[in-house]
């Protein structure tokens, strides 16, 4: 009974986040699109949670939902009239965008096909029993131990970005 419920939950969340993702693209109102983006990101967080990657799920909510908030504010600031329904959905760049998207799908699909998923379907247990749960402690150790150099590089790049943003903004 419980595995069925869990599957139902996962498929339901998948379906809802796909619908929300479609909403991001299709809705004419930029604010609604941003809200749909929140829905998609929350759905993905729920999927992480279902896969027992709690830390990543929570960080997903903490960072992405917060980031969407700033996006929403930009949306508000960029719209001339709030609730304007007459924004065109397509422009000249739609063809290159479609091409890029197709290339991306091919890339991801190729990766998916090439990946060896044998761990998951291996010993016949459920997903949870095979995958070791993502330990936050291990994650922290890995970030500040084994991968400390990339971590530091990323933080330096971020600081450079922050300072650059301040410099650009201060020019007036």
């Amino acid at each position: 009974m419980l595995p069925i419920l869990a599957k139902l939950f996962i498929y339901g969340v998948l379906f809802l986040s796909l619908v929300a993702a479609l909403g991001v693209v299709l809705l004419p109102n930029i604010f609604h699109a941003a809200l749909c983006l929140v829905g998609t990101l929350l759905g993905i967080a729920a999927l992480y949670l279902a896969l027992q990657a709690e830390f990543i799920a929570v960080v997903q909510v903490l960072l992405y939902v917060g980031a969407v908030m700033t996006l929403v504010i930009f949306a508000i600031m960029l719209t001339h009239r709030i609730g304007d329904m007459t924004i065109p959905q397509t422009n000249k760049q739609s063809l290159p965008a479609c091409l890029a998207l197709f290339a991306f799908v091919v890339l991801i699909g190729g990766l998916l096909l090439k990946t060896d998923w044998s761990i998951l379907v291996g010993t016949g247990g459920s997903v949870a029993s095979v995958n070791p749960p993502v330990d936050t402690f291990m994650l922290g150790k890995a970030l500040l131990g084994e991968y400390v150099f990339p971590f530091e590089v990323v933080s330096v790049i971020l600081i450079a970005g922050l300072i650059g943003a301040i410099v650009v903004a201060r020019k007036d």
Partner: peptide, 8 residues
């Protein structure tokens, strides 16, 4: 994380 969602 969850209490941050209040903002939205």
């Amino acid at each position: 994380a969850v209490s941050a969602m209040t903002t939205i």
